Simulated scan of single mutants.
Amino acid sequence: MTNTKELAEDTCQLVYQCRLSLSTRTINHLADLLRRHLKAIRSRWRILPPGKIAVIVLAILRHDQRLADMAGGNDVSESTVRRWRDELIGLLAVQAPRLDRALRKIAKQGGEVVLIDGTLIRTQRRTESADRRNYSGKHRSHGLHFLTLTDERGRLIWISAARPGRTHDNTATRHDHILTHLGTAGLGALADLGFRGLDNNILDPVIVTGYAASRTHKLTPGQKEANRVLAVGRAPVEHGFAHLKN
């Protein structure tokens, strides 16, 4: 049996340059995180400087560059690049705001409503049992499910941990106790049709969902406007919120 990883006789390894659109602020932020981490663990040496490592990891995360390609182009092993990637992801994860603190901050700033939605980040197929768990029948694609909260202008304030792609929005919301945190912070939420039936309190709903049309029920102009507000997640939020509560 031949080793498929061996290069053919008429091939050679080629290293080429490419241009990636990366924010200088993002690169510096990631490099500073790594410098502080290396100082904290008293690691005095890495084969590449923190700034270069940050660029490599961002190329992998933002532009889906293969680990082996980035390793070969920088004269390091693939396992080293994988370790750098996991290390910096961990450093970024520590900085992520907690849900309760993020909602309290919005409330202190005078906010009354947040926008909630689930999204699927598409990925490649995986082997064995993970392949079925990561397949989303709704999107007909493999990926990871994330639950996001934004303010009234659509700016991200919190994102959940990754879950299998087949996870339903309601399941993720209950797992993260979104209703409890919203009630504690005194906030309401606008949600899309994927969250229908999540909040059973009709008189004072915490999460307000859109209207669904059927063969026997057509939407009124006000209901259509409310659904458009949910779809774009922008002003006039108060107008749409009033329609949804009626």
Rank of each mutant, 00 (worst) to 15 (best):
I202V: 12
D192N: 03
T216S: 07
A242S: 05
S77I: 11
G90Y: 07
H177D: 12
L38C: 05
P49F: 09
W158H: 02
A130M: 09
D199N: 01
V229A: 03
V208M: 05
N201G: 10
R163C: 03
R228D: 06
D192Q: 03
I178T: 04
Q95S: 07
R42W: 05
Y16D: 11
P221Q: 05
A235M: 10
H175E: 15
T26I: 05
V237C: 02
L147E: 04
S160L: 02
I27S: 06
D151A: 00
L99E: 04
N28E: 12
K218I: 06
A71Q: 11
N246C: 15
G118Q: 02
L144V: 04
N134P: 00
I41A: 04
L99S: 05
V57I: 07
L38I: 05
H142G: 03
A102H: 01
S160P: 02
K105Q: 09
L7K: 09
A130C: 06
V232R: 14
D69L: 15
W84T: 05
G165I: 05
V232F: 15
L120F: 01
L147G: 08
K138A: 04
L203N: 13
V237Y: 00
D86K: 13
S79P: 12
N74F: 02
K245M: 14
D204R: 14
Q17T: 09
A226K: 04
R140C: 02
H139S: 07
G118P: 00
G73Y: 02
L61S: 09
A102S: 03
I121P: 06
L193V: 12
R174G: 13
R36H: 06
C12R: 15
R122K: 13
L230F: 12
F146K: 07
D69Q: 13
G111D: 01
T220S: 05
T173H: 11
L7R: 07
G111H: 00
A71W: 09
K224D: 10
Q124S: 12
L88S: 04
D32H: 08
H177Y: 10
N200L: 14
Q13N: 15
R98A: 08
P221D: 08
L103N: 01
R101I: 13
V55Q: 08
F241K: 07
R196A: 13
L20P: 03
R83Q: 09
I202T: 11
N200M: 14
T184L: 13
L22M: 02
R133Y: 14
T184G: 15
N3T: 10
M70R: 06
G90C: 08
M70F: 10
T167P: 06
T150S: 07
H239G: 14
T184D: 15
G188T: 11
L156F: 01
F241R: 08
F241C: 07
L30G: 11
D176F: 13
D192P: 01
A71G: 11
L58V: 08
E238Y: 12
A54Y: 01
K39N: 08
R155L: 13
P97G: 01
Q13F: 12
V208L: 04
Q65S: 14
D69R: 08
R155N: 12
D204V: 13
A189Q: 00
E128Y: 10
K245D: 13
P205T: 01
R215S: 08
A107Y: 02
L203C: 11
H29E: 11
D169L: 07
T119G: 06
R62Q: 10
I157W: 00
R42I: 04
A189K: 00
V15Y: 09
A93H: 14
L67V: 13
